[in-house]
Design a protein around this nucleic acid. Structure first.
Lengths: 212, 212
DNA sequence: GTCTATATCCAGATAGAC
DNA sequence: GTCTATCTGGATATAGAC
């Protein structure tokens, strides 16, 4: 995560200042409630520069969106490079997303909370963006390897990540008392047993579901 | 679901016409991309009437939001009245939400897809709205009754409904080829085995997770 | 209570000096 | 490339006839 890294107060380059200011404002107030003037003011840059660099408000949002998707993609790169099995990769991705939500809140908020099609009209849906496609690929691999019960790819991915994403959103909304990592084991446990290949249990559960 | 029922082309009352027009436009284009004039035009009403009835654009959104939350609440009423065990109530709620997504798409889209705090600034978060609180209550009851494995209420609710909500969003985004009810059994199966009380399997899974 | 015509405001975008 | 001052469109909201 090179560029938007927020550990230093506010790095040099002008377009980075603009993007970080925009990110914070967009997350705090929502894209449509933020004016270019506000971004300009917070970034300590003139309006002209913003239009020179990004061509306008939508340009800022698009640059930000692409940049953050790339960062997410790199996160996945890192996981894939260090973890062997697809199932463990899923687990590790969730772990890192949880950690990231605490340390880089607004990045995660922008990626997971906003409805990008409302301001990036012609853009592809976020679910079709590269990192999300890769995640589905990992889930499919796990099914092929027999680590996960075989089912529809969308169902499997939703089952594996749906609970975790929900928890991220709850944390972003300030509804969880503890930091996300504190819930990690419990979330993984639930997600995992929901998708794991385990025929005996599978059958047993099936009858129990029918019972109710 | 009395008022906004869309089976008839467009019922009489003026404020209903306004709300249905607004619902469709808000879902199609997003709240901020819809002007009062567009609502006026589609609802075949004059601007004056809109301001008389709702006081403005935000008033429309607020009325709509409250109305649809009430409908959701009634859906839960229906489930609670006809189904006995809390666990089965969860299952039935998901079943009805899936069906509803197909038959009343925009109602579900407005409730599940939008970020209401971006236009209803002072409103409570949707997760804290009555129907969502009740759903968490049902999950907690299920845990108390021993139908679900005992864990944090947020984690349990996310695990139970996270996958289903994700599937609803995917369907709304046009990414699922089949109608949602076709995925119902698979989704329930995954959600259920993720939360079910089943110590033997619980232990077995735990060791498998650690393995990866 | 419903409508049309109008006022007001403000955001996005530009022009042109430096 | 950066800035300030300015323009313009369009949105919300209102005034006042009917």
């Amino acid at each position: 995560m090179p560029y938007l890294k927020r550990d230093a107060p506010c790095p040099e380059p002008l377009d980075c200042r603009i993007l970080t200011a925009a990110l914070d404002l967009f997350v705090e107030n929502g894209y449509h409630n933020v004016s270019v003037h506000e971004v300009q003011k917070r970034a300590q840059v003139s309006i002209g520069s913003i239009y020179n660099h990004f061509g306008g408000k939508e340009g800022i949002a698009r640059a930000l969106y692409e940049h953050l998707l790339n960062e997410l993609d790199e996160l996945i790169d890192g996981v894939v490079a260090t973890v062997e099995s697809p199932a463990a990769q899923c687990r590790e991705i969730i772990r890192q997303l949880f950690a990231h939500t605490e340390t880089h809140r607004n990045i995660i908020a922008f990626l997971f909370h906003a409805k990008h099609t409302e301001f990036l009209r012609d853009d592809t849906l976020i679910c079709e963006a590269r990192p999300f496609v890769r995640i589905r690929g990992i889930v499919v691999d796990a099914m092929k390897k027999g680590e996960l019960r075989k089912t529809d790819a969308w169902v499997a991915t939703s089952a594996m990540f749906g609970g975790a994403v929900r928890m991220i959103q709850l944390r972003l909304d300030g509804l969880l008392a503890q930091p996300l990592p504190d819930y990690f084991e419990a979330v993984i446990e639930s997600a995992w047993s929901g998708v794991a290949e385990n025929t005996e249990h599978h059958m047993k559960t099936k009858s129990r579901v029918a019972k109710y």
